Simulated scan of single mutants.
Amino acid sequence: MAKLTIDLTILTINEEVEPAVFILHPDAQRLEFSLEPRWIRHMHKPHDFSFGPVSTPLPVFWLMLDGERTIQIEDECHVIRKGDLIVFPPGLPYQLLSAEAGSPVRYLSLSCTVRLGPFDFHELYPFPKLTAVFDEAIFHRLADHWMESVRLFDQFVALYEHDASDGSPSSLAVSLALLRVQGALQQWFAHLMALLGPQLPEQPPDIDPRIIKACTYLQEHVHEPLTLEKLAAHVYLSPSHFSYLFRRALGQPPAQYVRSYRIRLAKELLLQTSWPVGEISQRVGYGELSEFSRAFRHASGLSPQAYRQQWRHTNI
């Protein structure tokens, strides 16, 4: 069976960047591209502001506007200043170190899901952690789109919270506000990819379409028991051959991928909902809360409750 190759093409017309197009060859099939915001903020912080270490299941993007600080991602320290674009990878601990003196810092912060079909974008195209934007025109264009996204996101949140306070279903105005945010994010991401594209892998990954189908299935049925035999049968392969193709495509065995996806989804639900931990445990496929708590602590070093509480007191 032919493989699907994912190519990333950035189209430019009259120096204006159009949204990214993700094409699958050799057929006319495509992976659906989606962007969903978690937060979009314009941050002003004093010189002694610090946080962390923290980690998030989603990538976090910063664009430094003013000031100079030191960040740490895992064991690597970086001095960041105006014009630096920082990407905090999902799942890795990072922190902003305190400074005894200095000027306030101002930066733009954004976190969102970026997905290609069943895959997170960073699984296929890992982002560089630090990029210096030396070109003033590119910097201001990216910052302007980012600021517009902040404005639209704040409008959306205000409308959503107004409807929620009334106890009424979300209005058409809320849906339209979210569409405007998503449209602005598409433009922001196109500018981001025009900037980062040269640093991304030259060779796009080859993914067998049966593996894409299996990943889609396991995400749609994550609340159910998912064995190797069940996943292999869904795409009409023997367990051994399916496991071989899966490991070759994604670099890990199916069981590890399922465990990682369940914990990543649990982290997203802990941050984005107020559901009880027991309900989240059921939704991500753990029959017993104690089993879920052990798996979560093993993966993140924190209990589910502590992970949620940590982020409620972190504003980055």
Score class of each variant (00 low, 15 high):
T5Q: 14
L11A: 13
E16C: 00
L24R: 10
H25M: 15
R30G: 02
E32F: 01
S34V: 00
L35F: 12
E36M: 12
E36F: 13
P37R: 08
P37W: 06
P37T: 07
R41D: 11
H42Q: 11
H42I: 00
M43A: 05
H44C: 00
K45N: 02
D48N: 15
D48M: 08
F49K: 11
F49L: 09
F51R: 11
G52W: 01
P53M: 02
T56L: 12
V60Q: 13
V60F: 08
L63T: 13
D66G: 01
R69Q: 10
I71Q: 07
D75N: 14
I80P: 03
R81E: 10
K82E: 07
G83N: 04
V87K: 12
F88E: 06
L92W: 07
S98R: 15
E100L: 11
G102R: 09
V105C: 12
R106M: 03
R106V: 02
S111D: 07
S111R: 03
C112W: 09
T113F: 09
L116Y: 04
F127C: 03
K129C: 01
A132G: 00
V133C: 04
V133F: 03
A137N: 13
H140K: 12
R141T: 08
L142P: 06
A143P: 15
A143Q: 14
H145I: 04
W146E: 06
R151S: 14
F153Q: 06
Q155R: 15
F156N: 09
F156Y: 14
L159C: 10
D166V: 00
P169I: 05
P169D: 02
S171L: 03
L172F: 14
L172P: 01
S175Q: 15
L176S: 13
L176I: 06
L176A: 08
L176F: 14
A177D: 09
L179V: 02
G183H: 09
Q186T: 06
A190Q: 09
H191R: 14
L192C: 06
M193P: 00
G197P: 00
P198T: 03
Q199T: 07
L200Q: 11
P201F: 02
E202W: 07
P204A: 11
P204S: 08
P205H: 04
D208T: 10
V222D: 12
H223F: 05
E224N: 04
L226D: 10
T227P: 04
L228S: 05
A232Q: 02
A232E: 05
A232Y: 03
Y236L: 14
Y236R: 13
P239C: 10
F246K: 14
R248T: 12
Q252W: 01
P254S: 08
R262C: 11
R264P: 00
A266N: 06
K267A: 11
K267R: 13
E268Q: 10
L269Y: 06
S274R: 14
G278L: 05
E279H: 11
R283M: 10
R283S: 13
F292R: 05
F292S: 09
R297I: 08
A299R: 10
A299N: 05
A299P: 04
S303H: 12
P304D: 05
Q305G: 07
Y307G: 06
Q309F: 04
R312I: 02
R312T: 04
H313A: 08
T314W: 09
N315S: 12
